[in-house]
Each structure stands twice: as C-alpha cells, then as structure tokens.
C-alpha cells in the first residue's frame, strides 16, 4: 500500500478536488461561480477554500465591484503541481 502515500491528504475531500479541478483549467474564479460549479453551501465551500489557502495551494484576491465585495481564487504553482501529483497517484492506483 506504499502507493497510497503519494495521495495527498489535502485533496481527500470531493469539494477540494472540485476546487482544484476548476482552478487548474481557469484563471481567476470568484466565489459565486465556484459555488455554482460545485453545488455546495457557502460555509462548506469557504472552509475548504481556507484550508487550501493555508497550504498555499490557492491565491485569494478581494476586491470591490461597485459596492459589492468580490473574492476570487487562483491556483498557485505549488497547488497545480501538488494536484497533478495527486491525479497521477490516483491513476497509478487504478491501473494497479
């Protein structure tokens, strides 16, 4: 089971997998759009985003559009690399 060690614990949840998947193929994505893709609640999404941000896998940008605050996210280089490793490990495991 040594292969399992390559799986990144930080990406264990479906929501985190979803966030990273969206961010590796897009540039900046804002909170509402992310929520629309993943179909999860605000709180759930926010907590997973925080965890990924603390690991420095994603970058956060806060700005105002008119009077409304808007928060957008982008995958960092480290985040993209870690995610790629995780997917490769998944694929290896499946191939057995």
């Amino acid at each position: 089971m040594s292969l399992l060690e390559h799986l990144n614990k930080d990406f264990e949840s479906r929501v985190r997998l979803g966030i990273m998947s969206v961010l590796v193929v897009n540039d900046w994505i804002d909170f509402l759009e992310m929520k629309d893709h993943l179909q999860v609640t605000d709180g759930n999404l926010a907590s997973h985003i925080n965890a990924l941000e603390q690991k420095k896998y994603i970058e956060v940008k806060k700005e105002f559009v008119g009077k409304k605050p808007k928060t957008s996210y982008k995958a960092t280089k480290a985040g993209k690399e870690a995610f790629e490793k995780h997917i490769n490990a998944l694929e290896k495991l499946l191939r057995g």
């Binding site: 479906r14 998947s21 193929v25 893709h37 998944l90 495991l93």
Partner: peptide, 21 residues
C-alpha cells in the same frame, strides 16, 4: 476503494470540463 478513486477521477474530469466549456 477502487470505485471511490474512479469516482474521484470522474469528478475531477467533470469539474474541469464544466468550468472551462
């Protein structure tokens, strides 16, 4: 286990597809 991994990969693919097209 393997089914779960497969679902993970499928989820990743779906999210990439849906968010970029």
């Amino acid at each position: 286990m393997s089914q779960e991994l497969k679902d993970d990969l499928q989820h990743i693919r779906k999210m990439m597809e849906q968010s970029s097209r």
